[in-house]
Design a protein around this nucleic acid. Structure first.
Lengths: 109, 109
DNA sequence: ACAATTCATAAGTAGTCGCTTATATATTAA
DNA sequence: TTAATATATAAGCGACTACTTATGAATTGT
């Protein structure tokens, strides 16, 4: 079990939970404090903190304390293990890589 | 919970398990019967069948019976929910999209 | 028909997960 | 200092997971 695999494991595991994906996606809108994040969902604050801890350990988010609040933000580099996994086997789904490439092209606009 | 989300859920969940990812990756080498797949790992045949069932329900593999053997193969379109999820939020990790694009370029060689 | 082979399913189990409530740990304000 | 606020951690609980062994079902060969 190389560290690469372990990193992929943490990222896949973190994104496998729907609540955690929803929290992560909501952070793509921008930095937010735990209290704000909690208000967006119908789970308790400890549950949110636990999800954030999992996302943080996976490297998908970072935290910044400011006074009593702790602001979480997306760490884009955390997606790298996922990209690496896809890229490593990219030769096997060429059709979809082409489709993905086209999607990515729209980014420059 | 739209069907899109459910599909993403199944794909992320299926790929979250390391054994399942290993089985899936081994199938990228080509079609293989359950017995052959079982020989590649150190888990029992029922465990392999259960993993294959999960991968199949996620749409990541397909099965084909031939005599007593059942051959499993990768279904490339099954990755679509994963690509869709990445593409949907692609605007948020531009740096890595660039890196991913470069990786994809190597495909044409 | 019978035995052998291949795979799927059933049942059980230890461990993990995601949530809850309760409490501890900062940090700030009065 | 004390109280209020914001977050993290602890403990517990039901549900789910990933595995096992045992057995059922489908197919083939004798």
């Amino acid at each position: 079990m190389q560290p690469v695999v372990a990193a992929q494991d943490r990222v896949f595991h973190a994104l496998a939970d729907r609540s955690r994906r929803a929290i992560f996606e909501s952070l793509l809108r921008g930095e937010a404090a735990v209290k704000e994040i909690t208000a967006r969902f119908e789970i308790s604050q400890p549950a949110v903190s636990q999800h954030l801890a999992t996302l943080k350990e996976a490297g998908l988010v970072q935290a910044r304390r400011e006074g009593r609040s702790v602001y979480y933000r997306v760490e884009p580099r955390g997606m790298q293990p996922l990209f690496d996994w896809i890229a490593h086997y990219r030769a096997f789904w060429p059709l979809h890589v082409g489709r993905l490439e086209r999607l990515l092209e729209g980014m420059d606009e």
